[in-house]
Design a protein around this nucleic acid. Sequence first.
DNA 1: AGTCAAACCTGGGCGC
DNA 2: TGCGCCCAGGTTTGAC
Length: 281
Amino acid sequence: MPELPEVETVKESLKPYLIGQKIIKTKVHVGKLIKHPSENLFVEKIAGRTIVKIARRGKYLLFHLDQNLTLVIHLRMTGQLLFFTKKAEYSRHTHLVFHFDSQRELRFIDVRKFGLIYLVPTGNWEAIQGLKQLGVEPLSPDFTLDLFRELLAGRKGMLKPFLLNQKGIAGIGNLYADEILFRSGLHPKRKINTLDTEEIKELYGAIINTLKQAVLCRGTSFQNYVDGCGELGGFQAHLQVYGRGGKPCIYCQIPLQKIKVAGRGTVFCPCCQKAGDQERG
DNA sequence: AGTCAAACCTGGGCGC
DNA sequence: TGCGCCCAGGTTTGAC
């Protein structure tokens, strides 16, 4: 479940090791993870390229290469990117290995094989629908309260699916959606068009503050997340609802409820997170 | 437009 | 001891 803070941390942890590195060759063990172009073309085109810059958009990692190419990687749920400086045994689910000189490697490891890998012309995201349609970066100056109001305007859906929709705000997944809603005191099923001015401000602040704090903590290591050097994150110590279904709310001690919202496991406090009227756990 | 469900995939936890 | 079942979740796709 790498979300914005985890992907940001992977990016930052890899940066010092990868900038300026030349990809000598790529070993592909599970070819279907390469979504574009074909596996053969991918391997051929990436050989000899040098990594000049690493960036993040939403949950996508962007490795800008020379010759106007960009390697795009999405970790989805269980993907890991790990940098190795010397030969080490391949762990069980190593599906792709980028080789640099001096035996250095960047390995893509993914238990569930859900990850997505692309090689495209820099700035041309036509082949990557999800990246092309990505919404605003919530930690960028572009994400103003005014813009947030515009994003909400005219919408009638529930809050949680809105937060998870990458076309609106980029980078929020199931874990941070639950944490953000708890911190704003809003029910996950709350309808967008019932929010008042104060609640919108509250939600806006919670999005930024929660993500910022999680980035400072270097992400959440709840299941198998580690950064590019294999280091654990620290935000799991600050989780207030995610993974705490049935346990007492940190404010009111009432047991947190676990329900399904839009098909996602959702934990919330029935006392502290105000629903409109119709919803009841 | 919104809401739901299925699909992709594997490991872990559970009940029996 | 092991089998079968269900769950976890990011994103796309398709149905209603």
